[in-house]
Design a protein around this nucleic acid. Structure first.
Lengths: 205, 205
DNA sequence: ACCGATAATGAACATAGTGTTGATTATTGA
DNA sequence: TCAATAATCAACACTATGTTCATTATCGGT
């Protein structure tokens, strides 16, 4: 009925370790965490930890990999025609809306892992997934020689901008809905800075 | 003649520790580094380390603080009239050019500290400095109610975009000059995505 | 060139975390 | 109910930490 571990005890133990990890990263950052800290907070025996994870880095990797996998699995279900169509219509990409929904759902962990005490490698992974699902198809359809800037700086610019807004949104306590955030982002992506700030009659000088 | 430590031995020891730190972060990331690693690589006695730093976190903080201070010191010397004037002229901010020059100068350390094995807290600090020197004055002159998006998302968007391009530039081996990078960034900031990619007659479909 | 000040060394220390083992108990799924 | 296996507990050798103290080496100022 299952090639997976469905043993209630395993589920329970792993969940408690994951919860402890989230709390502890918040408290002291990942670096400062010891296996003893984790097992104490999780109320399990220290030996039990090693039954499931090689060390704390293994725990972190597995936790991150699950999140990335979660994103990729819903990304694949999305309309493959996306890409340029949405870009041209100045509409938020369905992927972006879904992404915010997903982030919201797993906010506890993601918030700390993307925060100042988190893991910069996870930022890189997330950027890569975003790039694949938001810009890859667009870039492939462009004659890059016509671009005003080198393509990899173009990509880095917008993906980092997205991630920065995501981090701010999480930090702010996710006051806006995923749809609202997608719209905000679209505006900034499609308009230049002067339009976004409503300049011309806006300046006080 | 000096309230500072100018003793040649201290200078030498600290420099060797800093160099070892840079190399070791590259090799295994900051987390994996032990004081023993540092002192072995630096060819000094382990006890000597503790004469200068409380622990490896103290070392990291001091190293980062020096960099931030370096940025702030040249920022203060710049023309205080900057701000909106340059933004309106679509010219690269002098601060940005200077910043790239500074990053280039300290690339060894900054490259790893901003990389996937680096310190996310340093990213946050750098963003803050950039915000103060690039957007603060602009934002103060705007009637924020006229903006199309919440001001803090606006700020996060562009500052993160800048940082993302900086990271890519470092990762790429700094092939472009500071001035070139400033121009590339200005283009992306002032034009929307469609203009930047040269769209309309650019799409192959 | 000297000499007092101080930086660096080397060895030892208690303390704490790591990852592993083997025996025992508790819980699970069928 | 019971065989399988997860979790516990205690012990283990090993490594890193941060501190100490006596000793040696190097510095800066005269």
């Amino acid at each position: 009925m299952s090639y997976q571990s469905v043993d209630k005890r395993v589920i329970r133990t792993k969940r408690m370790i994951r919860d402890a990890l989230t709390e502890l990263i918040q408290e002291k950052g990942f670096e400062g965490i010891t296996v003893r800290d984790l097992t104490t907070k999780a109320n399990i025996n220290r030996g039990t930890f090693y039954l499931h994870y090689r060390d704390k880095y293994d725990l972190l990797e597995q936790s991150e990999a699950e999140l990335i996998q979660g994103i990729q699995s819903f990304a694949k279900q999305l309309d493959p025609i996306t890409g340029v169509t949405y870009h041209l219509r100045n509409e938020p990409l369905p992927f972006v809306v879904k992404l915010f929904e997903y982030l919201e759902e797993h906010a506890d962990f993601i918030k700390v892992i993307l925060g100042p005490k988190g893991d910069p490698a996870f930022q890189a992974k997330l950027k890569e997934v975003m790039r694949e699902n938001m810009l890859e198809k667009l870039v492939k359809q462009l004659k890059t020689e016509k671009m005003l800037v080198p393509v990899d700086y173009f990509t880095s610019f917008f993906i980092s901008a997205y991630l920065g807004v995501i981090q701010k949104w999480l930090e702010n306590g996710m006051k806006q809905s995923p749809r609202e955030m997608s719209v905000i982002l679209s505006k900034m992506v499609f308009l230049g800075i002067l339009d976004v700030v409503g300049i011309k009659d806006n300046l006080s000088m």
